[in-house]
Nucleic acid binder design. Structure first.
Length: 275
DNA sequence: ATACCGACCTGTCAGC
DNA sequence: TGCTGACAGGTCGGTA
């Protein structure tokens, strides 16, 4: 489900709520899929640790953890705990009295008396701990220069849509924002990445940054079940130009929006505006 | 080396 | 009502 703007919204919400809190105890469900590290490794890294910071890297939420015994002076990072939400994952801070939602796979009891819960019906989400720092692949699309951005696509015969989704190139772009950026840049999703012209690359760079920035400002896109760490939905979906609008009129020219499948993913575009 | 495609899971919704 | 199939925001590994 969540792409860069949704993960950013969740990470910001979590940062304001749990930064400085200490993890008292950890409960992990019996389903193994959501755990990338062993349950023992996760429990050992988390229990007693202080949450020093919460940040987003691509589609990962990264919790910087400090050793339990370390005082303010000697405090040091002893592990990073990362959460990838997959398609349906969510992280919520809630009162322990609130009933556990179905598909809850992890519950962290915090010293402040609240709980941090990881819920994920489809179990595509992943939890892991990293002792030597966490290194995400690819480049942040909001930080990259135009020159580097253009260089990512050189020599790639793959459709530009697939290249945008490739997390080893750009990290954080998913199906919604790839389609929305291509719509604003007026480029067809099947256009071969390597054959984009300089003006097209310029438009795509600007469109991608704009669409991500607007979506973060709107708190992300809520489709079916997405909510942030507070349980609040986002509102960017009302600004979607093509995603989820198959058959509806293009907001620019009125033509019916098309849906095709590219590399197994639904791709939406206006056949008249996007060349 | 690169690129596509099915697999991984569960839930929901449209159509019969 | 109930069944079946298509589809869903993501990623991985095998294959071509």
């Amino acid at each position: 489900m969540p792409e860069l703007p949704e993960v950013e919204t969740i990470a910001r919400g979590l940062a304001t709520r749990v930064t400085g809190d200490v993890i008292e105890s950890v409960w992990l469900g019996s389903k193994p899929e959501p755990l990338k590290s062993s349950p023992e490794q996760i429990v050992r890294a988390l229990e007693g640790a202080r949450i020093a910071a919460v940040q987003r890297m691509g589609k990962h939420i990264v919790f910087r953890l400090e050793a339990p015994q370390a005082g303010p002076q000697s405090a040091r990072t002893h592990a990073h705990w990362t959460v990838h939400l997959g398609m349906t994952g969510s992280l919520r801070v809630c009162d322990p009295a609130v009933a556990l939602a179905p598909h809850t796979h992890a519950v962290l009891k915090l010293c402040s008396g609240r709980e941090l819960r990881f819920v994920d019906p489809r179990r595509f989400g992943r939890l892991s701990v990293h002792r030597d720092g966490f290194q995400a692949t690819g480049v942040e699309p909001l930080d990259i220069s135009f020159e580097r951005f253009a260089g990512l696509f050189r020599g790639r015969k793959t459709p530009i849509k697939s290249a945008l989704l490739n997390q080893k190139l750009l990290r954080g772009v998913g199906n919604i924002y790839a389609d929305e950026a291509l719509a604003r840049a007026r480029i067809r999703p099947r256009h071969r990445a390597a054959t984009l012209t300089y003006p097209e690359l310029r438009r795509l760079y600007a469109a991608l940054q704009k669409v991500l920035t607007l979506a973060i400002a709107a708190g992300g896109s809520s489709i079916s079940d997405y909510v942030d760490a507070d349980g609040e939905p986002g509102f960017f979906q009302i600004q979607h130009r093509v995603y989820g609008r198959e058959g509806k009129p293009c907001r620019r020219c009125g033509s019916a929006i098309k849906r095709v499948v590219i590399a197994g993913r639904s791709s939406h575009y206006c056949p008249r505006c996007q060349k």
